[in-house]
Design a protein around this nucleic acid. Structure first.
Lengths: 131, 131
DNA sequence: GTATCATCTGGAGTTTACTCCAAGTCAAGG
DNA sequence: CCTTGACTTGGAGTAAACTCCAGATGATAC
C-alpha cells in the first residue's frame, strides 16, 4: 500500500508518516524497486497503534522508547509493560481532569441557557406591557 | 494575594500568570502602591476558571475570545454560550477518543502480564526438569 | 544602611509536533 | 519524447504555549 492510501486510511499526512519513520517512531517501511514506500500489514498495524496513542496525547518520545524496546525482543517485556502502565496511569488522570472540566462547562452552559430564558421572559413582559 | 501565592495555589508559574495577563486571557490585576500585583477574589476565580479550561486543553485563543465577550457585557451571552457549547462538544469527543486509547492500553497491558506469567511458568518448568 | 529577596518589564528562547519546501527521480498517458 | 503527477530527501519553517532572562525597582531582614 502506497503512502497516499495509508495517509487517507488513518488521517495522517504523508509528511507526518515520513516524519514518524525518520525519527524512529515507525520502523523503516519496505520500498519497491524505485525506492517508493510500500506499507505491508505489519506496517499498517504499527501505524494504527501510533495513531491511536498519539490521538490520546502520548508523547512521541515515550512511544519511540517503547517501539525501540519492541525491536529489542522478549527481554524487554517488563520494561515495555512498565511504560504502558505508566502511560495508562497518566492518561486515566488526564481523562478524569477533562471530565471535571466537561462538568464545569455543562454547568456554565446551563446557567447561560437560564440567563437566555430569563431575558426572553423579560422581553415578553415588555411586549405584554407594550400591547 | 501576591503572585507567588496564586502560583502556589493553582500550580501555575508566576511567569505563566503574567503571560496570561499580557495576552489578555486574564483581565489586568490590581496593583499595590509599588506596582506589584495583588489578586482579589474575582481575579482568583478567573484564574481558577482558566486553569480548569487550560488543563482540559481548550485553546488559549478561544478562551481569550470568551473572556473578551464576558467583558463586553450581557449582549454577548449568546456568543459566549455558543463558544462553550462548541468547546464542550470538542472536549467530549476528545474524552471519548482517550477512553478508547485507555481500553487499548489496558488490553495490551493484560497481554503483557499474561506473557510474563507464561515466561515464569516456563522458567519453573525448566527448574523442575533441572531438579 | 546595606544585602537579599520578590517582583516588575519587554523581549528572546525553548519545546513539541508537525508541516512545508526545493530539487530530484521515476512511471504512465497522449 | 515530453509532460504530468506521485513520490523521494534533507532541511527549514511554523504554531502553540509557555519559560527564561537581563536589568530595574522596591521592600524586608539584620
Amino acid at each position: 500500500m502506497k503512502i497516499a492510501q495509508v495517509s487517507e486510511q488513518f488521517g495522517i499526512s504523508p509528511d507526518t508518516l515520513r516524519y514518524y519513520e525518520r525519527i524512529g517512531l515507525i520502523a523503516p517501511v519496505n520500498r519497491n524497486d524505485s525506492g517508493i514506500r510500500d506499507y505491508n500489514e505489519g506496517d499498517l498495524r504499527r501505524v494504527e497503534f501510533i495513531k491511536c496513542m498519539r490521538s490520546a496525547g502520548l508523547p512521541i518520545e515515550v512511544l519511540i522508547e517503547y517501539v525501540n524496546f519492541v525491536q529489542q525482543g522478549d527481554q524487554t517485556i517488563d520494561a515495555r509493560r512498565e511504560i504502558l502502565r505508566q502511560q495508562r496511569h497518566l492518561l486515566a488522570a488526564r481523562i478524569m481532569e477533562m471530565q471535571k472540566t466537561l462538568d464545569v462547562l455543562d454547568h456554565k452552559i446551563e446557567v447561560y441557557e437560564k440567563a437566555v430564558l430569563k431575558r426572553e421572559r423579560e422581553l415578553m413582559h415588555i411586549e405584554d406591557q407594550g400591547e
